[in-house]
Structures are given as structure tokens and as C-alpha cells.
Simulated assay, not measured.
Amino acid sequence: MKNNKTMKIVLPIVIVLALVGMYFVKNKESLKTSSNVETNVNSTETANSDVEGDFSLDIESGLPKLEEYAKAGLPAIIDYGSDTCPPCRMMEPEYKSFHEKMVGKAFVKYVDIDENPDAAKEAPIQVIPTQIFYNADGTPFEPSKELREKYQLQMYNHKVTKKPMFTIHQGFLNEEQLLEIVKEMGVEE
């Protein structure tokens, strides 16, 4: 009798959990196929660029290659996000369009922290989306006071040397805002 009561309680819970699990699995797969479509740089764009480097959008694994970006003499913007993050999905079309405009002018990269958690451990990622900005020489971008206040850009300094280590923005940025930031970084449209 007691076993019957337990089954009446446990069985509906198990069914609900199974349905919720199937929903998330199904949606995760559809999100992966839509957001992991690599933004391909066609050969004519690459041929027209004087700068060599990997201008693909996604960082599949490992850390962003800051030394490679600095050798190319181009600034880098790295967006940390996730396919499961609604603000990240809202920002995705803006970021992809921005990426297409910056090919050959700046490295614009995206790191999915669910797929590449080690990359997020190397940076001060507290929320997603978070963007990190580096100058063409590989140093952290130091924005003007006006730009810093306008977009709540935060600068992190080394505890001992007090030298800048990161310049970040937490949250959504649209393409126009990203273009304004990189313009101050010295990138021309």
C-alpha cells in the first residue's frame, strides 16, 4: 500500500523530468545548428586583405590567440557567451554582422563557454555575454573616459604591477555600439 502511494508521487515527477529533459535536448541541438554555422570568409575577401590570420568567428577550443592577433597588428574583440544564454542569442546577429565588417581590420572572435570552459577561466568573466577588447599591439584597450562611462567599460589592473590586464564590457552591445568602440581603437570602417 505504501509502495503504491510512492509510485503515484514518483511516477509523475519522473515523467515531467523526462519531458523537460527532452525539450532541452531538442532545443540545444537546434540552437547549436543555428549558432554554430561558421561565418565563412570567402577567398576574395582574404585575398584583398594584406593581413594574414584566422578571421573565422568561432574559437572552437583553447584560448584566444592574443600573440597571433598582436603579430598581425590588428585589435581583437572577443565575445564570451553561450548558446543557452538568451541575451547572447539576441546579440548573435549583431555580432556576426560586426564580424563581417571587421574582416581584415580586426579579429572578432566568439567563445562559447559551455563548449570551451577553459577559455573563460583565463578572463574575468562574471556574466555572459562579456566582451574583451585588445589593442593592435596586444595590450588591453584603454578607452576614453567618455566611452568608458557611456558603455560601462571596466578595466582590470594587475594587483602588483597595476598595469592594465583587461578591458571588458558585460552585457549586450549592438553593432553600432561595437563600431563606435573599435573606431576609438583606431579601426576605420
Score class of each variant (00 low, 15 high):
84 T>V: 12
125 I>E: 04
104 G>F: 14
81 G>A: 05
148 R>T: 09
79 D>I: 00
163 K>M: 03
112 D>I: 06
36 N>G: 08
55 F>K: 06
187 V>Q: 10
59 I>F: 11
16 V>N: 03
11 L>F: 13
177 Q>L: 08
52 E>K: 15
118 D>P: 01
146 E>L: 00
134 Y>M: 13
27 N>L: 01
23 Y>W: 10
81 G>W: 09
61 S>R: 10
178 L>H: 01
22 M>V: 11
183 K>D: 15
152 Q>G: 05
161 T>D: 11
139 T>C: 04
184 E>H: 04
107 F>W: 09
123 A>L: 04
121 K>H: 07
95 Y>Q: 11
131 Q>T: 12
128 I>Q: 10
57 L>D: 04
178 L>C: 03
83 D>L: 14
15 I>Y: 04
189 E>C: 02
22 M>Y: 07
14 V>T: 10
92 E>S: 15
95 Y>F: 15
149 E>A: 15
172 F>H: 06
159 K>S: 12
6 T>E: 11
41 V>W: 07
81 G>M: 05
12 P>V: 03
36 N>Q: 13
72 A>T: 05
67 E>R: 13
149 E>S: 14
62 G>A: 11
11 L>T: 14
54 D>S: 07
106 A>M: 08
114 D>E: 14
39 T>H: 00
4 N>T: 14
77 I>P: 07
51 V>Y: 10
46 T>P: 00
154 Q>T: 10
166 F>E: 02
139 T>L: 01
32 K>L: 07
12 P>G: 02
93 P>T: 01
181 I>T: 13
14 V>H: 04
88 C>W: 09
106 A>Q: 06
188 E>M: 06
85 C>R: 14
67 E>C: 10
25 V>H: 05
183 K>S: 15
132 I>Y: 15
56 S>C: 01
107 F>Q: 05
145 K>W: 00
110 Y>I: 01
169 H>P: 02
